[in-house]
């Protein structure tokens, strides 16, 4: 599936999302920088993990690169096309290549629409002129592909478990054969035993369809497992980015170290040795530099921490 691409599939440069904070008389007092000056590439067939804690700007980036909530400044180029310059009509055409999967499959689904109709909807909007019978066959194929019985197409959202609902959302997301999917905490609402099922499915689909993912998650164990590269966000900026082996094996930024040190490990022996060390890693000061420096090939760290 991988072709030699002259440019990355997705290229994000200096992306910022600022919100004006209004003072009580209505004037613009200051701005809240939800995301500031973020740049990264995603290659074809690649998964980039975006990690960070609540308020770090993870979801804001996901919504900005899909133009659901366009950035204040900066560019998002998909296959070389600057998405911000597209007309509404052109952007609708582009949507078939760029899809999203969200955390809560229940609120994403329409309770009054059966699962089959929900998966068929994008096909009706984009692939006009095909017969109903053709589309129904296509939907049945999508159900099978995500591991659901095609007979479930007539059922309604409340008749499915959480894991099944997320499979339905994934079936809809891949219906138009996209090149790129933003998955925003897609397993966070699922039970532990179901999470691995959905992650395996995402991986299978990547292999079969040549997909790229932006995988937004606070689950650092799953990010290491699934992602080729990882970007660590802190207060709206990327503080460290590297391939996942390097990032987890040789974290350089104090915030990355603190984050990784805090992940509980399902091994009581390890936990007993480690727990005492948590308090010792103080939170990084806000004085840390902002400019990313390449400390090793492909390993970027916010400046003053690297120096």
């Amino acid at each position: 599936m991988t072709r030699a691409a002259p440019y990355p599939l997705l290229s994000v440069r200096n992306l910022s999302k600022h919100y004006p904070l209004r003072s009580w008389w209505g004037g613009t007092a200051s701005v809240f920088k939800a995301v500031h000056d973020v740049s990264f590439d995603i290659r074809p067939n690649e998964t980039l993990g975006l990690v960070g804690e609540s308020g770090s700007g993870k979801s804001t980036i996901g919504r900005a690169v899909t133009m659901l909530n366009p950035p204040t400044s900066g560019t998002v180029a998909f296959q070389g096309t600057d998405l911000a310059r597209l007309s509404a009509r052109e952007m609708r055409g582009m949507r078939r290549h760029i899809q999203m999967v969200f955390q809560d499959p229940y609120s994403a689904l329409n309770p009054r629409m059966n699962a089959g109709a929900y998966v068929m909807e994008p096909l009706l909007l984009h692939d006009t002129g095909r017969s109903r019978a053709e589309l129904r066959d296509e939907v049945a194929g999508l159900f099978e592909r995500v591991g659901l019985d095609p007979r479930f197409a007539r059922r309604y959202p409340h008749q499915f478990s959480g894991g099944q609902r997320q499979r339905i959302c994934i079936a809809r997301a891949i219906a138009l054969k996209p090149r790129f999917i933003v998955a925003d905490e897609p397993i966070a609402a699922l039970d532990v035993s179901i999470q691995a099922q959905v992650v395996n499915l995402l991986q299978d689909l990547q292999d079969e369809l040549g997909l790229s993912y932006l995988f937004i998650s606070h689950d650092l164990r799953m990010v290491r497992y699934l992602c080729h590269r990882v970007a660590v966000l802190w207060r709206g900026r990327i503080v460290e980015m590297a391939d996942s082996e390097t990032l987890y094996g040789d974290p350089r930024h104090p915030y990355t170290r603190r984050l990784l040190a805090a992940v509980p490990v399902p091994d009581p022996v390890v936990e007993r040795q480690r727990v005492s060390a948590i308090g010792l890693t103080a939170p990084p000061s806000s004085e840390t530099g902002h400019d990313l420096t390449e400390v090793a090939p492909g390993h970027w760290v916010a400046q003053s921490a690297a120096g």
Partner: peptide, 26 residues
């Protein structure tokens, strides 16, 4: 055992291997 095996390893031991979920639903 199924719960323990369905978790990826933070130290990277599961990288490249397929996760072993518990099939089915409660």
């Amino acid at each position: 055992l199924g719960l323990l095996r369905s978790l990826p390893d933070l130290a990277g031991g599961t990288k490249g291997r397929r996760l072993q979920p518990i099939e089915g639903a409660p």
